[in-house]
Amino acid sequence: MKILSIDTSNAPLAIALVEDDQLVAETTLNVTKNHSVFLMPVIEQLMKMASWTPAELNRIVVAKGPGSYTGVRIAVTTAKTLASTLKIELVGVSSLAVMAKDPAELTNLPVIAIFNARRNTVFTGGYQMEQGKLVSFIEDAHMELSELIEKINEKQQPVLIVGDILPEFKNQFETNSKFITLGNEQSSFPSAFQLGLMGAKINPVSDIDSFVPDYLRITEAEMNWQKSHPGELKKSYVREV
């Protein structure tokens, strides 16, 4: 099975071609300012070097968020359009799981991945290896950093934290918990190869059209509207004309 895996959830851009659990080609860019400009040319180039044609692809695996809204949308739009237009399978994987996989395998510690969500909040999820499989122990969510630290302290277990470990986050982790080990920079990059491997084992989505990013946070405009219009939320706001 030929898999193309894509992660542009945050600043790095990670793309891999994976065939039968073997890495064929992989690119990670950490200089990208604009995923829209780089994503497709890198896919095009990797495919060319691997002598793969689009029609040969069997499955697209995408990191579906959380992360930067624009970054996640570029990956998900590319993935769902490729899958739809080539009539092939599509798999979405949590961007936090992608970040956690490598360190969880290497250290055997429960790993908590965090993405900075501003105002001292994070997108976060906890993952650990169980019988060779990555399983979630803290569900992906958007929360205050203090809430995450509370959850960690409740578990009373050492954990490894990877991802956006900002200086101010580092400070709060170190002062408020004795269970935390902070990951180094190398453990804070997404691996598109790991993403491809994970995606190979997950059932594809049944409806590509309705596949959307996991933002884990509604927009501010909608939040305010819902507060002032309780119970009025409709199922759909888009209609064909």
Partner: peptide, 18 residues
């Protein structure tokens, strides 16, 4: 943000079918 969805999808279609 709106333009990007169309541009991204159009590129994917053009690439997929050359």
């Amino acid at each position: 943000g709106s333009l990007l969805i169309g541009v991204t999808a159009a590129k994917a279609v053009a690439f997929a079918h050359d």
